[in-house]
Each structure stands twice: as C-alpha cells, then as structure tokens.
Write a protein that binds this DNA or RNA. Structure first.
Lengths: 196, 196, 196, 196
DNA sequence: AATGAATGAGTCTTCATTCAT
DNA sequence: AATGAATGAAGACTCATTCAT
C-alpha cells in the first residue's frame, strides 16, 4: 500500500507546510515536490492528482485528529467532562500545529465545492463523536432530552470552528487553549444567568 | 458616485446569480458582464478589478442584511428577545434569497485569503450588533457577567453560520427558519437540563 | 463570421509554414501565434483548439484545391481529357506550394486517428469529383463499364497520392508535373502493351 | 544476437496488439511491457528506444511479408500472373492479420517523419520485388517498354496501399481479397475499353 | 539478465485586464 | 460612457528512459 511508504508521508507533510506558507493558490505541485525532496512526477506515483493530495492530507491529519479526541474523551466519566475534553483536545491539537491550523481553517476552504464535499465526509466521523457525547449526556439526564441532535452537533462544531478560525486570522496572537473552558461553558450552560 | 448608477447595481446582482449558478471558479468576468447586459470593459468602469466586484457585492448585500437585523432587533424589549430576533432575521433573510445564501456560505469562501480578510471587516459591523445585544443582556442581568464577550460573539456567529451552511449544503431541503428557536435556546440556555 | 476576418487567414497560413518547417510535433501553438504575429490567446478567438487549426487548415486549403480542379476539368470535353486535367492540376497545385505539399503528404498524417477521419471527410468531396469523371467515361464508352467504381476512385487517388508523397520525400528534387502524363496513361491504359 | 531470444519476439508481438487496440498515441512503453509480461526496463535490454521497437516491428513483419510474396510469385510463369499473385498475397496477408493491418495502414503513419523514412527503407525491398516483375513483363513484351519504371512501381504500391487503407478504415467490413482481381486488372489494362 | 521506482522536460489553454475606437 | 478584440502569463500532468538492486 502506497500510504505506508515513506514518500507518501513526506509529500503530505510538505504539502501542509507549503500551503500554510504560500496559500492554497500559490501552492504549485512543483513547489510541493521540491519541499518534499522528490521529482514532480513522483507525486503522481502516490496521488492521482493535485486534489488527491489535499483530500489525502485532510483524511490523514483529520483521521489522527479525531482518533486522538476519541481516545482522550473515552477515559472521562461524565458527558460534561467528555465535552470539555473534546473542546480542549480540539484546541490543543490545532494550537500545537500552526501550519495545520492555517491549512484546515483557511486554505482548504478555498478549494472547490467538490473537494469541500469530500472534506465534509471526513468530518462526518467527527460529528459522530460529538453525537455520542450528546446522547450520553441526555441519557445521564445532564442534557435536555428534547434537543434537535442533528442541529446540536452542528452548533457545537460551529462554535469550535469559529473560535479556531478567529484565532488563526488573528495570527494566533492569543492563547487558544485557554478559551476551551469558556467555550465549553457556553455549550453547556449557554449565556443565561444560573437560575437559583 | 458610481454606486448609485443603475449599472453598478446591475452588475452586482448579475454577479450573485452567476456565482450561485456556476460556482465561484466558473464565474468569469465575461459571464457576469453578459448576464448584466454590459460589455466586459464596462465592468472596469465601475469596479477596480474582479475582487472588487466580490467585496462590493458582500458589502452591499451584507450592509442591507445587517441593517435589517438592526432594525428588527431595536424594536424588541429584552436582550433575550433581541437575540431571538437576530437569529430569526438572519435565517429568514438567507432563506428568502437562495442565491445569496449559496454565495455567502459556499462560493465566496473559495476566494483567496486577502478577500476573506476584507469580508471579515464587513462582518465586524455584524459582530458589533451582536456585541450590543450581549452587553444589554449582561446589564439586564439576564446573561452572565463574566463572559468573554469577544469569544461569545464569535460563538454566536459561529452557531448561526454553521447552521446556515449545513442547510445550504443539504440543498436547502429543510426549513431553516424553524431552527431559529432551537438555536436561540442553545445560545441562551446551553445543553444543560434546567436546574430547578 | 470569423472565417472572413484577416486574422483567421493569417493564422492558417502561419500554421502551414510552421508545420512544414518544423514538423507536426514541433509545431507548438505559441510558434504558430508568433509566426502569425498575434498573441497565443488570439488563436483561441478563431479556433476551438489546436486540432481545430489543423482541420480548418485542411478544409480551407483542400476546398480551394478541389474547387480549382473542378473548375479546370469542366472546361474539358472528354472524360479522358478531364482525367488528365485532374492529375495535372493536382500535381500543379502541390508543386506550386511546397509548404502545403509537405503538410498534406507528410505532417498531417501524423495526426491522431480522429483528426484523420475528419480529414477523410473532406477528401470525400474530391472522391466525388473523380467519381463523376469515371461515370462520364463509362457513358462515353471510353472506359470499361463493369468497373467497381468505388474501388476505381480509390486507386486513382492512391496513385496520385503515392506519386506526390514520393516526390515530397525525395525532397522535391524532380519535376512532379512532368509525371502527370505517365500517371494518366497508366490510369487509362494500364501496363499492357496496346493490342493491335 | 538479441533478435533470436524469446523476449524479443514477445515484445514485438505485444507491441502489434497493443498498438492495434489502443492506437499509436496510447501505446506507452509500460503498456507494451505489461502485455509482453516483462518489466519496463527489460524493453531497453532488447531495443534502443521506443522508436526502435516500431522500426524492428516493421522490419520483422514486413520482412516476412515480402518473403512470402517473393516465394509465391517466383512459382508463377508470366509477369501478369506474378503481378496478380503479388496483389493477392499482399491482400491475403493483411486480411489474415487484422492487428497488423491496423498497425501498418493507420497507426504507424502517425509516427514522426524520421521513423517514416526508416519505414520507407524497409519498403524499398518490396519496391524491388515489384520492379523485377515489371522488368520481366517488359522483357516478355507484355508490358509497354517506355514506362517510367520508378513511377510505375510507386503507382502499383499506391494502388494496393490505398485499397488496403480504405478497407481498414471501413473497419474491414467487406472482403479485401476479392478486390485483388479488379486491382490487378486496373494495373494491367487501365480504365480503357479494350480496343478491338 | 531482470526489475520497477524515480526522474523531469515539455505544452495547451484560460481568463482578468487593457485600450483603440 | 461604452465597447469587445486582443493580450500573455501561468501550471498540472504524462511518459520515455535510467539505474540501483
């Protein structure tokens, strides 16, 4: 399988750096090849075409991303803790890899609609993880039980995504991970004053 | 001022339709000119370049969009009501103009980073409106007072934006406006079971 | 109509010279544009793509070629004379335009099968002209009446074509037109000794 | 000598099939190697380069082709009979090997000029065979003695070649061998009505 | 002798923008 | 003000050939 060969990883990693540094539209295949230390043609031994590099990049990185989140959350007891860990791990991972953050939050969104649909498919795996936590919270009677779950998971994702995108657009000048607590709090308790 | 001349509006409106129907990358200047009923060169009498059409389009449409939301919210009494009206009007307006929804949620995001920064500047006006409502809610002691307001407005926007984007990507097959109540509820009360 | 604009002709004529001098596979669009004195992009205002230049070139030149032959032959009385005039005019025209001869006999044949089918369609008009002469000869009882006419026209064309191709491959070092009499004689009387 | 090794023949035969089935321009070295059951690199142990495969293919197949024709014709008595046998055997052989017919009549002609000159050299052997028959006919006083023999052999070849090419382009939907008699007749007696 | 992974040169076409009319 | 013909820069991908094993 091509995916286990070292050049596959080399090219993916080169693509992340090149796209983060040059922007999506200035990331020619030849530039990626050069950064990866291979010939242009070699790219095409491992990827069908340029779009395939990007889809693979996203699948690869997001696969690990989601796996890590799944792993961290399962060790937690309550749905509330799990949700916090999800937000925290989401922020942590992107804060730890600035290049990847730029690529996922800004550059990859400039791709055409078709590619974005493929990306969305990868994200379905993530939405499923969120779903499970919400379900658990409802079973625990921690969360309200008449929630529109399809909508809830969108909103949870939307909140985190917007928070990260803002942080990237502000050139990562503040600490993203510190926001995890507030974001989590908003998710769970909303804006309202606790009713006593 | 060019902006008041009829052709300016003609071109902007043509651009919305052309981009919604053909996608960002298949919306050549010549196609927009044709739809607008003017010569290619005429475009450049009203806009500096292609990007300027898109920025102007966004400013124009978003200006009206925000104005309408401001107008609707000011007539409401409480911050809670205002927030609901904001979500409702946000959803209403995009549901009423499918072309515009496609353009703002999907197509314009494929533009380059530079254009997206300009678009973000336009959105600052919207974020200010949200800010004011949150402030009011805090003053009314309806909302918690230790909220990170910069973050809160991002999350509010992120929730609505994600909800609309999903609706557009699902090809607008369900009723978006009906979700306003749930989204508002999530914003205000979060996921948690009301504590009695 | 594009075909009447001066640049259309300019580009066609440039293509003939460039292809004759450089060979089919070394005739880049940019080379043709340069020789025609227009920008690369201008080519695409007049032709759909590179292949379209070649098909149009062939249609244009062959159209004139055949027209000229038709014109010359109609003024002759007998089928025998007409056939001679056909061969003579065929040879004359190609001998008068060395570039065109190289292109039609050698270079255009390197095109892909698809293009060659299109070229063959153009040649059908020529075969029809030959057909008419053969028919007339048969009616005049000059030619045998049990001839397979579809085959006969192929053979007549094949003889001329091979003669011209040989002349081009021998770098046009001998006089092609002088061969018209012998070729005509072979067509009409064959190899055999006249029986007395 | 490489030519006697089994892989040499394997590669040549694979090339004929691959080119006939895929066309000249879709017949990559790797495709030929795969069909021949050898590695890409192995091709270069037996052939200098891709062109050398094609030239060798032509030499090989045409060598046998011409040999067979020589063999069949020598057993005939008169030049007229020999010429008929030549046409008949020419048609027979190509009708018997459709792949080869496609390759020689259509696909190999798409090769570049250089390759076609080499192919022409191979054909000189064939032209010599034709020459001999014409000479014999003249000596027998069967054929006219003031014929331009260089031209005559071209025309004889041109007639057969055009007949076969047409048959291939018509997708071999009629019987080629049946045309041998008519073609021969045209060669020997021409179009003219026998003079009594 | 045989392999096959790696190489890297080479080109058609699109489309935002200009400018003579 | 309006036109639209003309411009020309820019990049993904293929495939014949090599060479370390």
């Amino acid at each position: 399988m091509n995916k286990d060969k070292p050049k596959y990883k080399q090219i993916i990693d080169a693509a992340v750096v090149v796209i983060a540094e040059n922007g999506y539209h200035s990331s020619q295949v030849s530039k990626i090849a050069k950064k990866a230390g291979v010939a242009d043609g070699t790219i095409y031994l491992y990827f069908k075409n340029k779009e395939d590099i990007l889809v693979s990049l996203f699948q690869d990185k997001m696969g690990q991303f989601i796996e890590r989140i799944e792993h961290e959350t399962t060790s937690k007891q309550s749905a509330e803790e799990k949700l916090f860990t999800l937000v925290e791990t989401h922020f942590q991972q992107l804060a730890a890899d600035h290049h990847l953050a730029i690529v996922t939050q800004l550059e990859l969104r400039q791709s055409n609609k078709e590619l974005r649909y493929k990306i969305n498919n990868v994200l379905k795996g993530y939405l499923a993880v969120i779903d499970n936590i919400v379900d658990e919270g409802i079973r625990e009677k921690l969360f309200r039980d008449h929630l529109n779950r399809r909508l809830v998971r969108q909103l949870i994702f939307g909140m985190m995504d917007e928070a990260v995108t803002n942080w990237v657009m502000k050139e990562q000048r503040y600490n993203l991970e510190e926001q995890a607590r507030d974001v989590h709090s908003l998710m769970v308790y909303g804006l309202a004053q606790p009713r006593s």
